[in-house]
Design a protein around this nucleic acid. Structure first.
Lengths: 351, 351
DNA sequence: CGGCCCTCTGTTAGCGCTATCATAGCCAAG
DNA sequence: CTTGGCTATGATAGCGCTAACAGAGGGCCG
């Protein structure tokens, strides 16, 4: 405390300050702080002491520029507001915690333009890898990813051509699988309730798979209802009411996500409708939330945690050993949970 | 396409490449790409063209080092898994979208050590500001924040001394307010259900305020139940069952968050209990999810979106004009929503 | 037509770190 | 005591960009 002013921070500290305070060269300080190279115990202690008292925080910008090593992994996802991506994030964090790497999140709100912008922004920090949701990107985005020279993992979806690696489930197949289960359970008049999101390619693919499998059984979606924005639980209620008012003959409702399905379930229970005998229900995503509902909802688990973990593992491996071949593909199988809202006929081995 | 190999990306592109391709100096390219300084239309077009065909992505690391300007705002929050922080994030994004600034999220999992580490890591990228949840930090973390020389906004809570600015609600007061409303509605045997999280200071403060206000009316919490981990909805169910099995005389249940309250509500409705006459319920947080429940739950809105927005505005203002005085404090008032689960006695103007 | 003030472009010198190589000091072997 | 081979430390030269200033060219004035 040699100066008057107790709040310094006028000029941010640099290696030089630590070097002067501890009486060794900047290079030695750098070595100590990065635990790299041989430094004697005595010097190390002296340097650490000085760094600590000064409150020195290394400048990674300068470090990264000098070493062209950046321990960041860009994670680009459409949204944080429906629990599916936070869960993927957890998987990613779990794996990266054991490495030097750090995830940095960018959110696109399902907008391709925003995705392109966020991607550009992130790539300009020269991360060590990119984990990005989906296989559909603008041409420019694909070009950037391809030219970046770093490991890229596209996640969630495997129905398409990856730029490099991909990890996910087949949403088309998930849709087919659910349709088959519904048909086998004997339901005939099937309604679909989903989001009005032309850019949610995964929901679209599930729907395509669903209708395709129904068609094979000579069925089609009898009525459908779409929403956007607002509380999903409430929307589920409202849409269910609306679709049944219009098409009272429906005996099954397939929802594009568990939250609206839960809303529908609560509504139908209140109306005293017999589930799954009179009307069957199914959602998608296996949200943990559902455990507490009065009736266990039929759903399909998209293995979000595993997707995050597998993606992070690919990046970690590639960073650790750059000779690891690119283009790894991990296909996870969505597992159906019949719950109490979908009549069970017989165990099928798998689809 | 002069070379054989169609996948270049051996050496990442630099300003020099663009400069050579467009026949102007690196400086001019830099000016064009940053829209700074006067450049003739012809040159600008030439440069942009070259940058685009090459697929050049600027290196922000070098840029930041040279200009000592980093357009990142560190956002440090405890968790992404309960919707309250994602909502704060949305508020932050909404405001920062109109600026050059970009949020970067770090998650601490309610661990002070992790918070310290995440903070160190983030500060080492020299962000333009920090938004951090809570007022409780390790000594080292406080020292780093204080010495960083950048705007700091502590959010969510205002019961304590901020390092610089703070934005939030008083959780003590929120607890008191709810207690008063419950007592005025005539409930006497009050149970508390919450998380077993010694490090969730805000939940603790709410509980303190709650018991303090009860004490003023000569009451105390008759029984309580705590949980950790797992599906909150399910836990709400289980805890409600447990506490009522033990203390059947309870006539009110105060839950520390809306998710467990929702679980409790569903359970009690199934049991055919008369709400709010026989038992009253209240939660905390005003989660959008609740709109779809069979009965509208009494809760208190913590204005999370507004907290995010206000915090981001403070940072944006301070970055825009560094002479803006620090130490701004924004206290938001939590608003009570009686819903259908808390008997209403009379309108009170406010607490 | 010199002088002045524009507009546009280029030159130079770092930003704070790390890679790389050089070197001082030391000990053991010959 | 020399030589070789250590280990511990330092000197130097960038990383890719931008700030700050310098200068070239052109138009317009008196």
């Amino acid at each position: 405390m040699t100066r008057e002013n107790p709040t310094p921070a006028v000029r941010p500290l640099t290696l030089r300050d630590v070097s002067e305070a501890s009486g060794v060269s900047e290079m030695t300080v750098s070595r100590v702080l990065r635990n790299r190279g041989d430094v004697s115990e005595a010097t190390r202690a002296k340097v650490l002491e000085a760094a600590k008292t000064l409150g020195y925080v290394p400048n990674k910008i300068a470090g990264a520029l000098a070493s062209s090593r950046v321990n960041l992994v860009a994670v680009i996802i459409p949204s944080l507001s429906n629990m599916v991506f936070p869960e993927v994030m957890m998987g990613i964090s779990q794996i990266l915690e054991d490495t030097e790497l750090q995830p940095v999140v960018g959110v696109t709100n399902y907008s391709p333009e925003r995705e392109e912008k966020v991607l550009y922004e992130m790539l300009s920090w020269r991360p060590s890898g990119v984990i990005i949701a989906g296989l559909e990107h603008t041409e420019a985005a694909k070009a950037m990813l391809g030219a970046s020279g770093i490991p890229i993992v596209e996640i969630m979806d495997v129905d398409g051509e990856p730029i490099d690696s991909m990890v996910g489930i087949s949403h088309r197949r998930a849709g087919r699988h659910m349709a088959t289960a519904i048909v086998e359970a004997g339901y005939q008049k099937i309604g679909f309730l989903g989001t009005k999101m032309p850019l949610d390619h995964r929901a679209r693919k599930r729907f395509e798979g669903f209708t395709e499998a129904l068609a094979k059984s000579g069925l089609e979606v009898a009525d459908s209802e779409f929403y956007d924005g607002g509380s999903a639980l409430l929307k589920g209620r409202e849409m269910t009411q609306a679709i049944l008012a219009r098409s009272p003959e429906l005996d099954f409702l397939y929802y594009s996500n568990d939250m609206i399905a839960a809303g529908g379930l609560l509504y139908l229970l209140e109306k005293g409708i017999d589930i799954p005998a009179q009307i069957g229900l199914a959602g998608f995503n296996g949200v943990e939330l559902l455990d507490g509902l009065p009736r266990s909802l039929a759903t399909m688990d998209a293995h979000r945690l595993d997707i995050g973990r597998a993606a992070a593992e690919i990046i970690a491996r590639r960073v650790e050993d750059p000779t690891t071949p690119p283009g790894e593909v991990v296909v996870l199988k969505p597992s159906i949970d019949f719950g109490d809202t979908l009549k069970r006929v017989k165990k099928r081995p798998d689809l």
